[in-house]
């Protein structure tokens, strides 16, 4: 896969040179391919949010480089600003950033800042709204009149409307009900398919990252400690638990089954579990 974003050995220190100095990232490196779906997991304070803000040039790494399409985003002021548009970042609880009179205007804030003409802005706003299921009536309403889940979707649409090649989301489903969660996750997947965009999602739900992502980054104590497909990462169950993380419930069940002497493979999603159980059942029937 062709890499779009490359992080080279970055470290970040908060309040350097004061008594409050704090190392938030230490020598983190990875690269991100076009269209890849990557999950980021880590305990609170492991540096996830800091890392996310490095990727679009909001925070400048104390050392190391962030390359977008092979060029350092900090080599030129214009490039840094470009990076903000090409790498879209959705913060935690993004609904708290809504400010315009109508939902339409709020979603248009990003595209307008890009300097696009009115027609293009309109196309992008309507495209993003349609993607996250915001109706035309809602576009005309005040963002403060929407329900919690709708506000969240409007805020995410505000970033999607910039049509970034990399979409980063910091816990996009925090505080939503199960139906709202599923909808938003499906819409993120849909965005990725439509635009062939890379998606980086911070999440505390092992089920979600196991189901959706191709690759997992595990952060612990400001360092990147694991980087691999979920199937591989979740085989390190004990280490993950030690870091204050967990593995999907279905993986836990299957690990127990193995301990009990059943010949089952490692699984991490429900559909895999179903397949494995069917195979097991079939196997015993044929024996």
């Amino acid at each position: 896969m062709e890499p779009i974003l490359e992080v080279r050995d970055i470290s970040y220190v908060y309040s350097a040179g004061t008594p409050f100095e704090h190392r938030a990232l230490e020598n983190v490196s990875f690269s991100l391919g076009r269209g890849e779906f990557v999950g980021v997991i880590g305990h609170t304070g492991s540096g996830k949010s800091t890392l996310m803000q490095q990727l679009n040039g909001l925070l400048k790494p104390t050392s190391g480089q962030v390359l977008l399409d092979g060029t350092d985003i900090w080599s030129d002021k214009k490039l840094t600003r470009q990076a903000r548009f090409r790498v879209g970042l959705v913060f935690q609880y993004p609904e708290y950033q809504l400010f315009e009179e109508t939902v339409y205007q709020d979603i248009a804030f990003g595209p307008k800042n890009m300097g696009l003409d009115e027609k293009e802005v309109d196309r992008r706003v309507r495209g993003a709204a349609e993607l996250v299921g915001i109706t035309d009536d809602q576009l005309k309403a005040s963002p403060f009149d929407l329900s919690g889940g709708q506000k969240r979707r409007a805020a995410i649409a505000g970033v999607m409307a910039m049509e970034p090649e990399v979409l980063i989301l910091d816990e996009p489903t925090a505080g939503l009900d199960p139906v709202g969660r599923k909808e938003i996750l499906d819409q993120i997947s849909e965005y990725r398919v439509r635009r062939n965009a890379a998606v980086v999602m911070v999440s505390h739900s092992m089920e979600d990252v196991a189901r959706l992502t191709d690759r997992l980054l595990v952060l612990c104590g400001s360092r990147l400690v694991m980087d691999g497909p979920p199937a591989e990462v979740f085989t390190h169950a004990e280490e993950l638990v030690e870091m204050g993380l967990s593995i999907p419930y279905v993986t836990q069940v299957f690990l127990r089954l193995r301990h009990m002497g059943l010949d089952v493979p490692n699984v991490y999603t429900l559909s895999q579990a179903e397949e494995a159980l069917m195979a097991l059942k079939g196997g015993t029937l044929h024996a």
Binding site: R84, G88, F91, Y96, Q97, F109, N113, G158, V159
Partner: peptide, 13 residues
């Protein structure tokens, strides 16, 4: 600080 970062991420200057 948080809101400023969020708007900067949408290109606010």
């Amino acid at each position: 600080d948080k809101i400023m970062s969020a708007q900067k991420a949408r290109g606010a200057d």
